[in-house]
Amino acid sequence: MNSTTVETNKMHTENGIFYPSNVMLDLKDLKKVYPTPKGDYVVLEDLNLQIMKEEFVTIIGHSGCGKTTMLSMIAGLNPISGGNIAVMGNPVKGPGPDRGVIFQSPSLMPWMSALENVLLGVNQVFPHATKAQRKDIAMYYLHKVGLDGSFNKKATELSQGMQQRVGIARAFAIKPKVLLLDEPFGMLDSLTRGELQDILIEIWNKEKITAVMITHDVDEAIFLADRVVMMTSGPKAKIGDVLNIDFERPRTRKSVLQHQDYYKYRKHLIDFLEH
């Protein structure tokens, strides 16, 4: 199984995409152990994954396989039990604004307006900018996610989908090196989900921030990603397979669905998940 990962990397080398300096995120022999009364429970073991600059990677796998654990370890919210994670060669020692996170629930501060929620991060990352400049940044991203009329609405007054839009704006506005998305659209209905995928990919096309996104949705995984990483079921989960998605960017949903390889990719992913 490990050889697949290596092969993928080689392929990138052949395409001239892979250089050591091009690695944004490097997960090496990553291990996560939760101690339980019945002994240690090994969630992840020997997990190796390299993610390139400006790459969009989606991760799929069965529930409880440790995808979220892996993502929260990259975010620095969950301590590493073994191996290491490096962002541009610097080992991860804790959370920080170089890794923006979009959580599954929008996690907005309900007592703040949409603008204040975005500003909370912006103020932190650009302390030397003037107040007006910071406000401009926040408003720019809120505009990008289509929330022009809702700057001053309290988070509780927004629908779930609108709240997640603010979550997206908040994450992009702090200009992270890596964007970590933990099933951000999992709680939304399929129509809203499609809208938000379009918004996400539109901003991403412009900003080209390296993105790692967990999803349960095979179509979402294909539509958004350059590579789909498949994780084996836990315990001791690792990378099972990696699939390159060679659609051109910028993509539209229609062109992706009509592409001759689409059903080949889809079958590959579903075959993996069903075995």
């Binding site: 919210l77 604004p97 996170v101 996690s107 501060m109 909370l120 932190q124």
Partner: peptide, 27 residues
């Protein structure tokens, strides 16, 4: 306080003062 809010504060690396007065107390 809701763990999500604490995580947001951690990711944004809010200082102790900010964390207490902007996140923990209001919530």
């Amino acid at each position: 306080v809701d763990k999500d809010y604490i995580n947001v504060a951690k990711v944004l690396k809010l200082g102790t003062f900010q964390k207490v007065f902007k996140v923990i107390l209001p919530s």
